[in-house]
Amino acid sequence: MIPENDIIALFKAPAVAMKAERLLRKAALDCRLIPAPREVAAGCSMALRCPAAQLSTMIRELNRLQLTPRAMYRKSASGYQPVTPSAEGEYHDPVSG
């Protein structure tokens, strides 16, 4: 379902995920809402998926919009690897810094 290297972001509530999708799409990001994979979220959560190539832009926009995800993951061959926030709570692209 989720291509390798794609990023998924989880938010504190479905409406926040909806807001994030709307605003990121306005910023021309190719993101979309999906059911959150059970490996990273219990129950019926929604997740926002974004291609790996847009990770930096996604993080920059989310920080600018103050829509900090409660968790972010990168899909890898072995599962979902956490993208960890800084001490200030902001996410940084682990590749580009």
Partner: peptide
């Protein structure tokens, strides 16, 4: 029900849910 965080017995903190 609010459509998310269904395992919790508590209502979510976030508005509008």
């Amino acid at each position: 029900g609010t459509g998310g965080d269904s395992m919790s017995e508590e209502m979510p903190e976030a508005l509008p849910e």
